[in-house]
Design a protein around this nucleic acid. Structure first.
Lengths: 257, 257
DNA sequence: CGTCGCTTTGATCATGATCAAGGGATGTGG
DNA sequence: CCACATCCCTTGATCATGATCAAAGCGACG
């Protein structure tokens, strides 16, 4: 569902991945065709199933076409850390699948549509499409920036700031793939999972959300989050969205000459 | 100092970077020559100077040849999060420099020797040396794994586990570039910086180190750390070193056929 | 010899965890 | 259609991990 709704459109960025990469640097029709080809023959994965299993070996990555999935690690005593939330357009398996044995588990939070891209196909882009390859590999490297930002949050932000930051990140990322409104979106995680992502207990996440609501910064109706005072929330969270996007991928400038 | 000590050696992995990449997959003499060339004309940077300034624009990355540097972010109110410790052989500027404006600051902890590698030169490797380019870009992507591991630590490990994990990571990484003994190394950070890396206060880091010493797991003499009971420390920290290395870079297998 | 940077110590405090339990929803099988 | 189960949110009480504040010791270095 939702896969290429406007099949007839002349040069629309059709898949979420194309859409995302387009935000980094303009793509040629040729490159878009290559990307589309990479995402052909998608596979359906049901809720709660594992997309990537820790310890297994993989020969490629997955592109998430629709749905939401979670990268996580469970420690021996059951404590869990959610490393990242993958939204449509995200690539699953970086960096976990770059190792002999996958480092993390990725589970489908909702039913997902994914397309497998073997490493061979990625590396074969080097020669005919160096610019596209560079764009893709830079976006892989940027993965690290999202983790770094989470690290800053978990390491040095208070619970309130963390939750606020998380909400802003979700809003921004969902907007980037057209899944959120101006100031509202549907929260894809339970409060327990938010806790596991933010290094907090369920109860404290709940408490914190109530605090944000009491302060009039946001409101919650079921899973529907509405940000009431965007500026105040941004100030509270010290949110700097540049790490999520940025118009022209800096390093790619050198292809323009 | 320490740069290419054995100039005459026939096929020694001479620079720390070559050494590191060699651990991922065997390099041809040709590829080693290219790497050496990338690292020619190093620049000296004094202690405390910034190698990368947050907000500035960069057109390449730096390879750290010798010395230690810190990637960090300072929040508006002065709280600091140390994101990573860069050791010889590490590439500085991923992912921070992949943005229009650098996301993080990198400061030299000791005097450093670095070599600048413009993005153009990296991308020019695609065509003549696809295998090498793949190795380099995969190692960039793996950067994310180190952050993810830190995230797990800061999010879900106790202070004791965190400090233990940090010590083990330093030991392993320093060994990889020949800067540590079997079970001892020189700690390149002050306790305050360790705190900023681990999301702890200075005093508590101190307290925790004393606890580890009292339990006979390690001993400390000035900056010299000695691990007394490696197995116990590994068990305590739930340390899984595969994220730091791993013999054959999984995705590169496809070049072998 | 004084100062600066770092470690150490101790006392007090607060953020956020844990434990325990109740309360809707939604779903499911009898 | 109802009993029951499950999943998730919510509330309150208590507890502990680790922060903060304050200050002293201790080299090294100019």
């Amino acid at each position: 569902m939702g896969l290429r709704p406007e099949q007839g459109a002349a040069f629309a960025a059709e898949t979420p991945l194309t859409r995302k990469l387009e935000r980094l640097s303009a793509l040629s029709l040729d490159e878009i065709a290559v990307l589309d080809d990479l995402q052909s023959s998608p596979r359906r994965v049901a809720r709660r199933r594992e997309l990537v299993a820790e310890g297994r070996r993989y020969d490629g990555v997955l592109v998430l076409l629709s749905g939401v999935s979670l990268r996580q690690r469970v420690l021996h005593d059951g404590r869990r850390q959610v490393l990242n939330v993958a939204l449509p357009g995200d690539v699953i398996g970086v960096p976990g699948c770059l190792y002999e044995n996958a480092l993390y588990t990725v589970v489908a939070l909702t039913d997902c549509l994914v397309s497998a891209v073997p490493f061979v196909r990625l590396f074969r882009l080097f020669e005919p499409h160096p610019r596209l390859a560079a764009t893709i590999f830079c976006s892989f490297s940027r993965e690290a920036a999202i983790y770094a930002e989470h690290l800053i949050g978990v390491g040095r932000r208070s619970a309130l700031e963390r939750v606020a930051h998380f909400l802003l990140e979700m809003l921004t990322r969902l907007q980037a793939v057209g899944l959120a409104g101006e100031r509202s979106f549907e929260l894809p995680l339970t409060q327990e999972l938010m806790g596991d992502a933010l290094g907090l207990s369920v109860q404290y996440v709940n408490h914190t959300l109530q605090q944000l609501r009491a302060d009039g910064l946001m409101s919650l109706d079921g899973q529907q989050v509405t940000i009431n005072d965007l500026d105040a929330l941004i100030a509270l969270a010290d949110f700097e969205k540049s790490y999520l996007g940025g118009r022209d991928l800096g390093p790619l400038r050198c292809f323009n000459r």
